[in-house]
Every structure is written in C-alpha cells, then in structure tokens.
Computed example of a mutant assay.
Amino acid sequence: MLRKNLLLTLAAAGAVVTMLACGAGSGDTSSSVTGGDAKPVESAAPEKTTAVAKIGQTVTLNNDGLGENDIVEITVTNAKQHTKEPGSFGSKPERGVFLVLDVTVVCKQGTYHANPYNFKFVAKDGTVSDGAFATFKPELHATDLSAGQKVAGKIVFDVSKAALTGGRIQVDGIGLDYDKPAAYWAL
C-alpha cells in the first residue's frame, strides 16, 4: 500500500511539473498602449491581446500570474538609421543599416529584468532579427528593476533598408510569458 501511495504521489507531482513546464497557468501577461491610438491585435489565445503602438508611445505590461503582480511601462522612441557605428573603428552593418532606438523602462510595481535582448526587430514578412553587436551610447544594459526604478538606453538592430518598411519592434512578455511577444511598436 505504501508503494502504491508513493507511485500516486510521484505521478501527481510529475503532472504538476509538466503543467508548469508546458505553460499551464501562464498567459497572464497583458499589454496596453498610452499616448495615442492603441491597436490591440488578437494573439494565439482569444482572450489575450498584443498591443501595437507607434514609436514614441508607452506600452504597459502587466504580469499577475503565480502570485506575481508586476507592472512595467516601456517607451520606444527616436528610430534612426546609421551606416556606421560611432568611433574611429566603427563597424558597418552587414545587412544594410543600423536601426537605433531609445528605450525607457519604468517599473511601476513588482520587479522587472530590463534587457536589450527582450527586444527584436520583426520585418513585414515575419523575419525576426535580434539586436546587433554595435555600440551606440548610452546603451541599454541588462538591469534588475524594483518598483519606482527606471533605466534608459539605446538598442540596435542590423537590418536591410527594405525590411524597415512595415517593420516593428517587439518586446517579449514578462513572467511565464517571457518567450512570447507582449507588444509591438510600428516603425
């Protein structure tokens, strides 16, 4: 009987681990836009929306899953193109241009790990580009924020000029949705 109870306990624990690993209980990140026309776009789950903002608008991310209650405001501004990294030894973009944007992250409640790798460039055809290895100061550095703290800096992408038309900047979700798009800024 002890062996049967142990097997049932292990099976139940395995089911809980599987549910958490597969994302059951996730999907608690939501986003909204302030400072202009908000255009929520339906995502894979019908009850969730992914905000689409214009450059210069602030997006608010909320995470209220698994006992967390985090609120973060992110603003992406000043989209500029460069054909060379600053400095006498500055590199040139491999794909066409460096797209440089200013990002401000404000943690309103809870905590947030601000990181330039939370952002991606998404072309109109769906091609995704991570940040470029180019330095435009001041850089956005990976920083752990608590309520009331903020960080600002530049993020950089190496993209073709053609990809800029219809392109968007994506920010990843927070909490268990860290690997899913939470919001976009249209260029």
Rank of each mutant, 00 (worst) to 15 (best):
172 D>F: 10
136 F>C: 06
118 N>P: 02
143 T>S: 12
156 V>L: 04
121 F>R: 00
113 H>Q: 14
173 G>M: 05
64 D>K: 08
31 S>T: 11
24 A>T: 11
6 L>F: 02
43 S>E: 09
172 D>W: 08
9 T>S: 14
3 R>M: 09
23 G>M: 05
168 R>F: 12
9 T>E: 01
143 T>L: 10
3 R>A: 12
39 K>T: 07
68 E>R: 13
91 S>K: 15
174 I>D: 02
32 S>Y: 00
82 H>M: 03
161 K>S: 11
127 T>Q: 10
31 S>F: 01
167 G>N: 00
78 N>D: 15
163 A>N: 05
67 G>K: 14
94 E>V: 14
36 G>C: 08
66 L>W: 15
90 G>Q: 08
139 E>Q: 09
121 F>D: 01
22 C>R: 14
74 I>N: 00
97 V>Y: 06
172 D>L: 15
104 T>N: 08
126 G>E: 10
73 E>A: 14
35 G>E: 04
185 W>H: 03
18 T>M: 07
145 L>S: 08
37 D>S: 10
24 A>S: 15
115 N>M: 07
123 A>N: 07
180 K>V: 04
149 Q>Y: 07
95 R>G: 01
16 V>C: 06
142 A>C: 07
55 I>C: 01
92 K>Y: 15
75 T>I: 09
165 T>E: 13
156 V>G: 03
13 A>L: 15
154 K>T: 02
56 G>P: 05
146 S>K: 15
4 K>C: 03
79 A>W: 00
52 V>R: 08
29 T>P: 00
52 V>P: 05
180 K>A: 04
60 T>K: 01
155 I>A: 02
116 P>D: 02
7 L>N: 09
5 N>I: 01
81 Q>V: 13
25 G>Y: 12
132 A>T: 05
178 Y>E: 05
124 K>W: 06
110 G>M: 11
121 F>C: 00
2 L>P: 04
127 T>P: 09
187 L>M: 12
66 L>I: 03
3 R>S: 11
67 G>M: 14
122 V>W: 01
161 K>L: 11
143 T>E: 14
176 L>G: 15
180 K>L: 11
127 T>C: 09
89 F>C: 07
158 D>C: 14
177 D>C: 07
47 E>C: 03
14 G>C: 11
148 G>F: 09
92 K>P: 12
162 A>K: 14
26 S>C: 06
97 V>E: 07
131 G>L: 08
108 K>V: 11
103 V>D: 03
144 D>I: 02
89 F>G: 12
80 K>Q: 12
163 A>P: 10
185 W>L: 03
163 A>G: 06
111 T>C: 04
83 T>M: 00
115 N>I: 01
33 V>S: 00
113 H>Y: 13
130 D>W: 12
14 G>I: 11
151 V>M: 06
145 L>K: 06
149 Q>S: 13
186 A>W: 07
57 Q>F: 00
9 T>C: 10
3 R>N: 08
122 V>Q: 08
184 Y>H: 09
67 G>Y: 14
86 P>Y: 06
63 N>T: 07
151 V>W: 10
166 G>F: 06
160 S>T: 15
70 D>M: 04
44 A>W: 04
146 S>R: 15
18 T>H: 00
157 F>I: 01
117 Y>V: 12
69 N>T: 06
139 E>R: 10
71 I>F: 05
